[in-house]
């Protein structure tokens, strides 16, 4: 994969993921009760204590109307970014994402918001320079974070006995928002060996990510496993945002890993 192709695909997938994020929020803000919970009145205390801005500016920037405006701005910038890979559109996306995260007291969806910042940063580094080495740096930044995210997630799990014994997975699935997942988990409650196998599949999948730079010939297979992994996470826990933002980072991994192969 060439550098320009990797940047192009990463940028477009990122724009697509952020368009979906914006669309989701846009639909939510049209629901009657959304601003009841995430009202400025409820959030005012944290915003005024946490932002070094005047109260009037905070009230303006984080009002319901401005929030909807920022979401629409994100969607527009994302559509532009899908067709024209320019630093300005992605700079707007960085701004809108930051404002939205702050509006949700830090994150709306945890890890996917963090990874969005990672991919945005890498893409902005790549877009803001005509030097090939700087562009490579942008993609490498994304690749390092993605590989590290898998490995760190696995490392954090394997030190806990619940994961090593297979007990963690049914506990996690029993907290799913989907009734069918909870029922299936309860149905297989006695099949502890199954959960043991699945837990270790997750642990091995996450931990071996660190080997990708050294065994780049397996990148495609790992990517397919990752796509399946993120789909299963969505299907069982409802985390659809994770799927798209992690997928957007994969062209950067393919390119960065291939760089190591050519050296």
């Amino acid at each position: 994969m060439s550098l320009s192709l990797a940047i192009s695909i990463t940028g477009r997938l990122l724009a697509f993921a952020m368009f979906l994020q914006g669309l989701e929020l846009f639909l939510l803000t049209r629901k009657k009760y959304f601003f009841e919970i995430w009202s400025f009145t409820n959030l005012k205390g944290d915003l005024e204590k946490g932002l070094p801005l005047s109260n009037s500016l905070i009230a303006f920037l984080f009002s319901g109307v401005m929030f909807k405006t920022i979401i629409v701005l994100q969607m527009i910038a994302a559509v532009i970014g899908l067709f024209y890979l320019d630093a300005f559109s992605f700079g707007i996306l960085f701004f809108t994402h930051l404002m939205i995260c702050i509006r949700f007291r830090g994150t709306f969806n945890g890890g996917s918001d963090m990874m969005t910042f990672v991919v945005l940063t890498g893409v902005l580094i790549a877009f803001n320079s005509s030097h090939v080495e700087t562009q490579k740096l942008g993609l490498s930044y994304i690749a390092i974070h993605i590989i590290y995210s898998y490995f760190k997630a696995g490392l954090s799990k394997i030190i806990h006995a619940d994961w090593r014994s297979g007990l963690a997975l049914p506990v996690l699935l029993e907290r799913s928002l989907f009734l069918d997942i909870r029922l299936i988990t309860k149905k297989f409650h006695t099949k502890k060996h199954l959960y043991f196998i699945f837990c270790w599949c997750v642990l091995i999948f996450e931990l071996i990510a660190l080997g990708l730079p050294m065994f780049s010939q397996f990148t495609l297979y790992y990517f397919l496993a990752a796509a399946l992994f993120h789909f299963v996470i969505y299907y069982s826990l409802g985390l659809n945002r994770f799927f798209w933002i992690w997928m957007s980072a994969w062209p950067a991994i393919f390119y960065s890993v291939s760089l190591l192969q050519t050296k």
Partner: peptide, 20 residues
């Protein structure tokens, strides 16, 4: 402390579902 919490998405933490 609250400021850092508001912008914490900019500082990745990849401890997903570690502790059940």
């Amino acid at each position: 402390k609250i400021f850092v919490n508001l912008i914490r998405a900019m500082f990745p933490n990849w401890n997903f579902f570690d502790r059940i």
